[in-house]
Design a protein around this nucleic acid. Sequence first.
DNA 1: CGTGTGACCGGCG
DNA 2: ACGCCGGCCACAC
Length: 133
Amino acid sequence: MLPPSLRKNKPSKFDKENFFERVFAVVKKIPRGRVTNYGAIANYLGTGLSARTVGWAMNSSHILVPPIPAQRVVNRNGLLTGKNHFATPSLMEELLQAEGVEVVDDKITHFKKLFWNPADEPLIKKKRSKKNN
DNA sequence: CGTGTGACCGGCG
DNA sequence: ACGCCGGCCACAC
């Protein structure tokens, strides 16, 4: 649940669909050891080019309990652009390394191979939940 | 209500 | 490959 400070979003095409929660939901679905980028999430949510808004949503994700795997969301170059928003600048990289994601110079190696597109995931059918992931 | 800013992206020189 | 610019959406002044 979002704290009151984040629920006061003004009416918009995002608010009515709970854009924040949708972003968080997608991030939560990113498999361990895989990564995606802001644009892919934005596109998946149908917001097109509003990747920046996804990043803005992530900026508020640190208050969530339990926290979402925000370390698996990087920019289009596989660069850990959000590292400075974690508790410590090195935390994001450490979390990724712990998942087996190699990070060199704030950049994910083999980014293309590890890239996970939410659109690849078959839309939630609820029936096949047993086999998910 | 105009402006500036941002964990962005794509195109172009 | 690098850097600049415009566009996108939401928020804070």
